[in-house]
Computed example of a mutant assay.
Amino acid sequence: MKHALILSAGLAVALAACGQKTEPAPVEAPTAAPATTGDMAAMPMAPAEAGKSGVGSGVITAVDAAAGSVTIDHGPIPGVGWPAMTMSFKAVPAVVAKAKVGERVQFDVTVRGRESEVTAIRPE
């Protein structure tokens, strides 16, 4: 009788363990020793986030020189996967200086993550 009870208890524990999922042990990122030579090539660096570029066309609706931005009511921009919309963009200083409200333009835009920047505008 004792053997049957011990065997039943062992079997119950084994069956209970079979249905449980186990989490893999966390893997820690290796730490790099600091460069002692002053050579930046030896420093570990995160990979640069790849950006997308596209060309759009639209009408400039606002220019904010202090913020370094332009707002454009633009059509779809397939190169970056955007539908038509009105949005504010960061812009390089040359674009901000050249942009005029109400002007219809073609523009180059670069997108990295959630950041977008107009790098050039041309009259349309």
Rank of each mutant, 00 (worst) to 15 (best):
M1Y: 05
K2T: 12
K2H: 12
L5S: 08
L5I: 11
I6H: 02
I6E: 06
I6A: 10
L7R: 12
L7P: 00
L7G: 05
A9I: 12
L11N: 01
A12N: 01
A16Y: 12
A17R: 12
G19F: 00
G19S: 09
Q20E: 14
Q20N: 12
Q20G: 10
K21M: 10
P24Y: 04
P30N: 05
T31I: 15
T31R: 15
T31Y: 09
A32S: 14
A33W: 13
P34G: 05
P34Q: 13
P34I: 05
A35R: 07
T36A: 06
T37P: 01
T37E: 13
G38A: 03
G38K: 03
D39T: 04
M40D: 09
A42L: 15
M43R: 14
P44A: 09
M45R: 15
M45A: 15
A46N: 05
A46G: 01
P47F: 09
P47A: 13
G51A: 11
G51T: 07
K52S: 11
S53L: 06
S53K: 02
V55S: 06
G56K: 04
S57A: 11
G58H: 02
I60S: 03
T61P: 08
T61R: 09
A62S: 07
D64A: 06
A65S: 14
A67L: 08
G68D: 10
I72P: 02
I72Q: 03
I72Y: 06
H74W: 01
H74P: 02
G75V: 06
P76V: 07
I77E: 04
P78W: 03
G79A: 03
G81F: 09
P83I: 06
M85S: 02
M87E: 06
M87G: 04
F89M: 02
K90G: 05
A91Y: 05
V92Y: 08
A94F: 06
A94Y: 13
A94L: 10
A94W: 08
A94C: 02
A94K: 15
V95C: 03
V96P: 02
V96Y: 11
A97P: 00
A97S: 13
A99N: 05
K100T: 11
K100E: 14
V101R: 10
V101T: 14
E103S: 07
E103Y: 00
V105P: 01
V105E: 06
V105F: 09
Q106N: 10
F107R: 06
F107P: 04
V109I: 13
V109W: 00
T110D: 14
V111C: 11
V111M: 13
V111G: 07
R112Y: 14
G113A: 05
S116C: 08
S116E: 04
S116I: 01
E117L: 11
E117S: 10
T119R: 10
T119A: 04
T119E: 03
I121W: 03
R122N: 05
R122K: 13
P123M: 02
P123G: 01
E124G: 03
E124F: 10
